[in-house]
Design a protein around this nucleic acid. Structure first.
Length: 465
RNA sequence: UCCGGAGUGGCGCAAUGGUAGCGCAAUCGGCUGUUAACCGAUGGGUUACAGGUUCAAGUCCUGUCUCCGGAGCCA
């Protein structure tokens, strides 16, 4: 006899009454009626909603499930999908048999049917996916991930798997996590220094802080590529927007200047928001109700308005002549503070802003120098409240200029042999950007802390689970 | 890392230096086609950790750890 196919709650709730269905999931709540039956709400993760099971106490299996069927227990229910006699749901399941797989002792199971703070849930990361909030976040996260691949695939980009372990300890970005198999208690030494010749790779290696440089290599052959993978920063950052391990999307495009780059970034964000609004409506309504009352409105606004394109110099002008009092004063050449960015995005333009053409002094060596010799073709996409979600640039494609820029920044061109080779042989104008995936999930769910939009957050002093 | 706040039953919070309480959850009972169910009763706490001041410390002081908010770094 063939094994019965499992019905997902999401499908059943949209289905017509029919016989012979099988529901499998976790009990969210149970209410007993003196009418001799129980209301059992089961969730299987397919959607936010639970399905209501009516389980009669005259069932043969009653004596087996009555005691162990509590909040958190796991069940299989065979029965019929019927029109609901009560209010609040159109259909429900009338159980023919109920089986409890795993119990959840109510005296100890931490997830009882009550409100729990996200801070508390973070301490039980192995159980928190069973909550409405985290379940909804993960469905949205999944949709965004799928949608990112679709966006690039539809536009002829190749998904490129760049390495997690890299030898370039000079990428300019933040602190890196070292990768080693050396005995840390007694590492081999040469002239008092650690001898990396004896390490696994024969040199010092770290976890990647960006796949950009490797993506450039492939863009210089395949034209359009993107990476989407884990990224690591060993910065001691303790904020609601930073993780030590996060996922980053990095497209890299040949024959693409800064304008094209900004255009793609804007199109990309709008595509993703639109897609989530369309395909995660139920979950977004939940966030809109419980997390952020303006979430859906905000997402719709982003989708329906052009992003403001603002050169850095004009941003400085706006800030200088502003009547707003800032903690940090501004002048041309300084890094904009969070308060400045928020002022521009939330007060002046009230929509996403793309800042571009930054002073070369505050940006890395690989960004293309403008004709003025003072600014580089860099751009940051800023969203209300969240701040920077995308950072990118047109890359310097001129061999001599790049060599000079490397020296200017106090780096050694010798270390960048293969990177310079890309400019020596068949160089092309090219651009790219990096999008923080968790920040995207934050914005689309309204969740304030980045630790609640990734299954297992890694932050300073936290790598549990 | 810097600035500020916090750590008290399973969870969310109270408690002028003087008997540690409340709500939710849990347990038991009542009621009910219920649905954040409702009503009644019961159990549950070395107040983060280590020192110190005091007749007396959840409360004051010192140190440590962790968490939260903001800043920096950035995505």
């Amino acid at each position: 006899m063939a094994k019965q196919k499992r019905d997902r709650v999401k499908d059943l709730l949209a289905d017509q009454p029919r016989e012979g269905i099988l529901v499998q999931g976790w009990v969210r709540t149970r209410r007993d009626s003196k009418g001799g039956f129980s209301f059992i709400e089961v969730n299987d993760g397919s959607c936010l909603k639970n399905i209501q099971i009516i389980a009669d106490h005259s069932l043969d299996s009653f004596k087996d499930w009555n005691k162990p069927l509590t909040t958190g227990s796991c069940v299989s229910v065979h029965g019929n999908l019927v029109v609901s006699e009560g209010k609040g749901q159109s259909v429900e399941v009338r159980a023919a048999s109920v089986k409890v797989h795993g119990t959840a002792d109510p005296e100890h199971y931490p997830l009882q049917k009550k409100f729990h703070s996200l801070e508390f849930l973070r301490e039980i990361s192995h159980l928190r996916p069973r909550t409405n909030t985290i379940g909804a976040v993960m469905r949205v996260r999944n949709r965004l991930s799928y949608s990112i691949h679709r966006f690039f695939n539809d536009r002829g980009f190749l998904h490129l798997h760049t390495p997690i372990i890299t030898t370039s300890d000079c990428e300019g970005a933040g602190e890196m996590f070292q990768v080693t198999t050396l005995n840390l208690a007694d590492p081999p030494k040469n002239d008092g220094k650690i001898d990396y010749n004896q390490d696994f790779f024969g040199k010092k290696t770290s976890l990647t802080v960006s796949g950009q440089l490797e993506a450039e290599i492939y863009a210089m052959a395949l034209s359009l590529v993107y990476t989407f993978g884990p990224t690591f920063r060993a910065e001691n950052s303790n904020t609601s927007r930073h993780l030590a391990e996060f996922w980053m999307v990095e497209p890299e495009m040949a024959f693409c200047d800064l304008d094209d780059n900004m255009e793609l970034a804007e199109e990309f964000i709008k595509f993703l928001f639109k897609d989530v609004l369309e395909h995660c409506a139920g979950d977004l309504e939940f966030f809109n109700q419980r997390i952020d009352k303006h979430l859906i409105e905000t997402l719709n606004q982003v989708v329906s308005h052009d992003f403001e394109r603002l050169p850095y110099s004009e941003a400085i002008h706006l800030l200088e002549k502003s009547s707003e009092t800032f903690e940090y004063s501004v002048e041309w050449g300084c890094n904009l503070q969070a308060e400045h960015e928020r002022y521009l995005v939330e007060k002046v333009f009230k929509k996403p802003v793309i800042l571009f053409n930054y002073p070369e002094t505050i940006k890395p060596f690989y960004m293309k120098l403008n004709e003025d010799g003072e600014t580089v073709r860099a751009m940051d996409v800023l969203l209300p409240r969240l701040g920077e979600i995308i950072g990118g640039s047109q890359r310097e494609d001129d061999y001599d200029t790049l060599t000079q820029r490397i020296r200017q920044k106090g780096l050694d061109p010798e270390e960048y042999g293969w990177y310079l080779d890309l400019r020596r042989y068949g160089s092309a104008p090219h651009s790219g950007f990096g999008l923080g995936f968790e920040r995207l999930v934050q914005f689309t769910t309204g969740i304030e802390n980045i630790r609640d939009v990734i299954p297992f957050p890694r932050t300073p002093k936290q790598a549990g689970f």
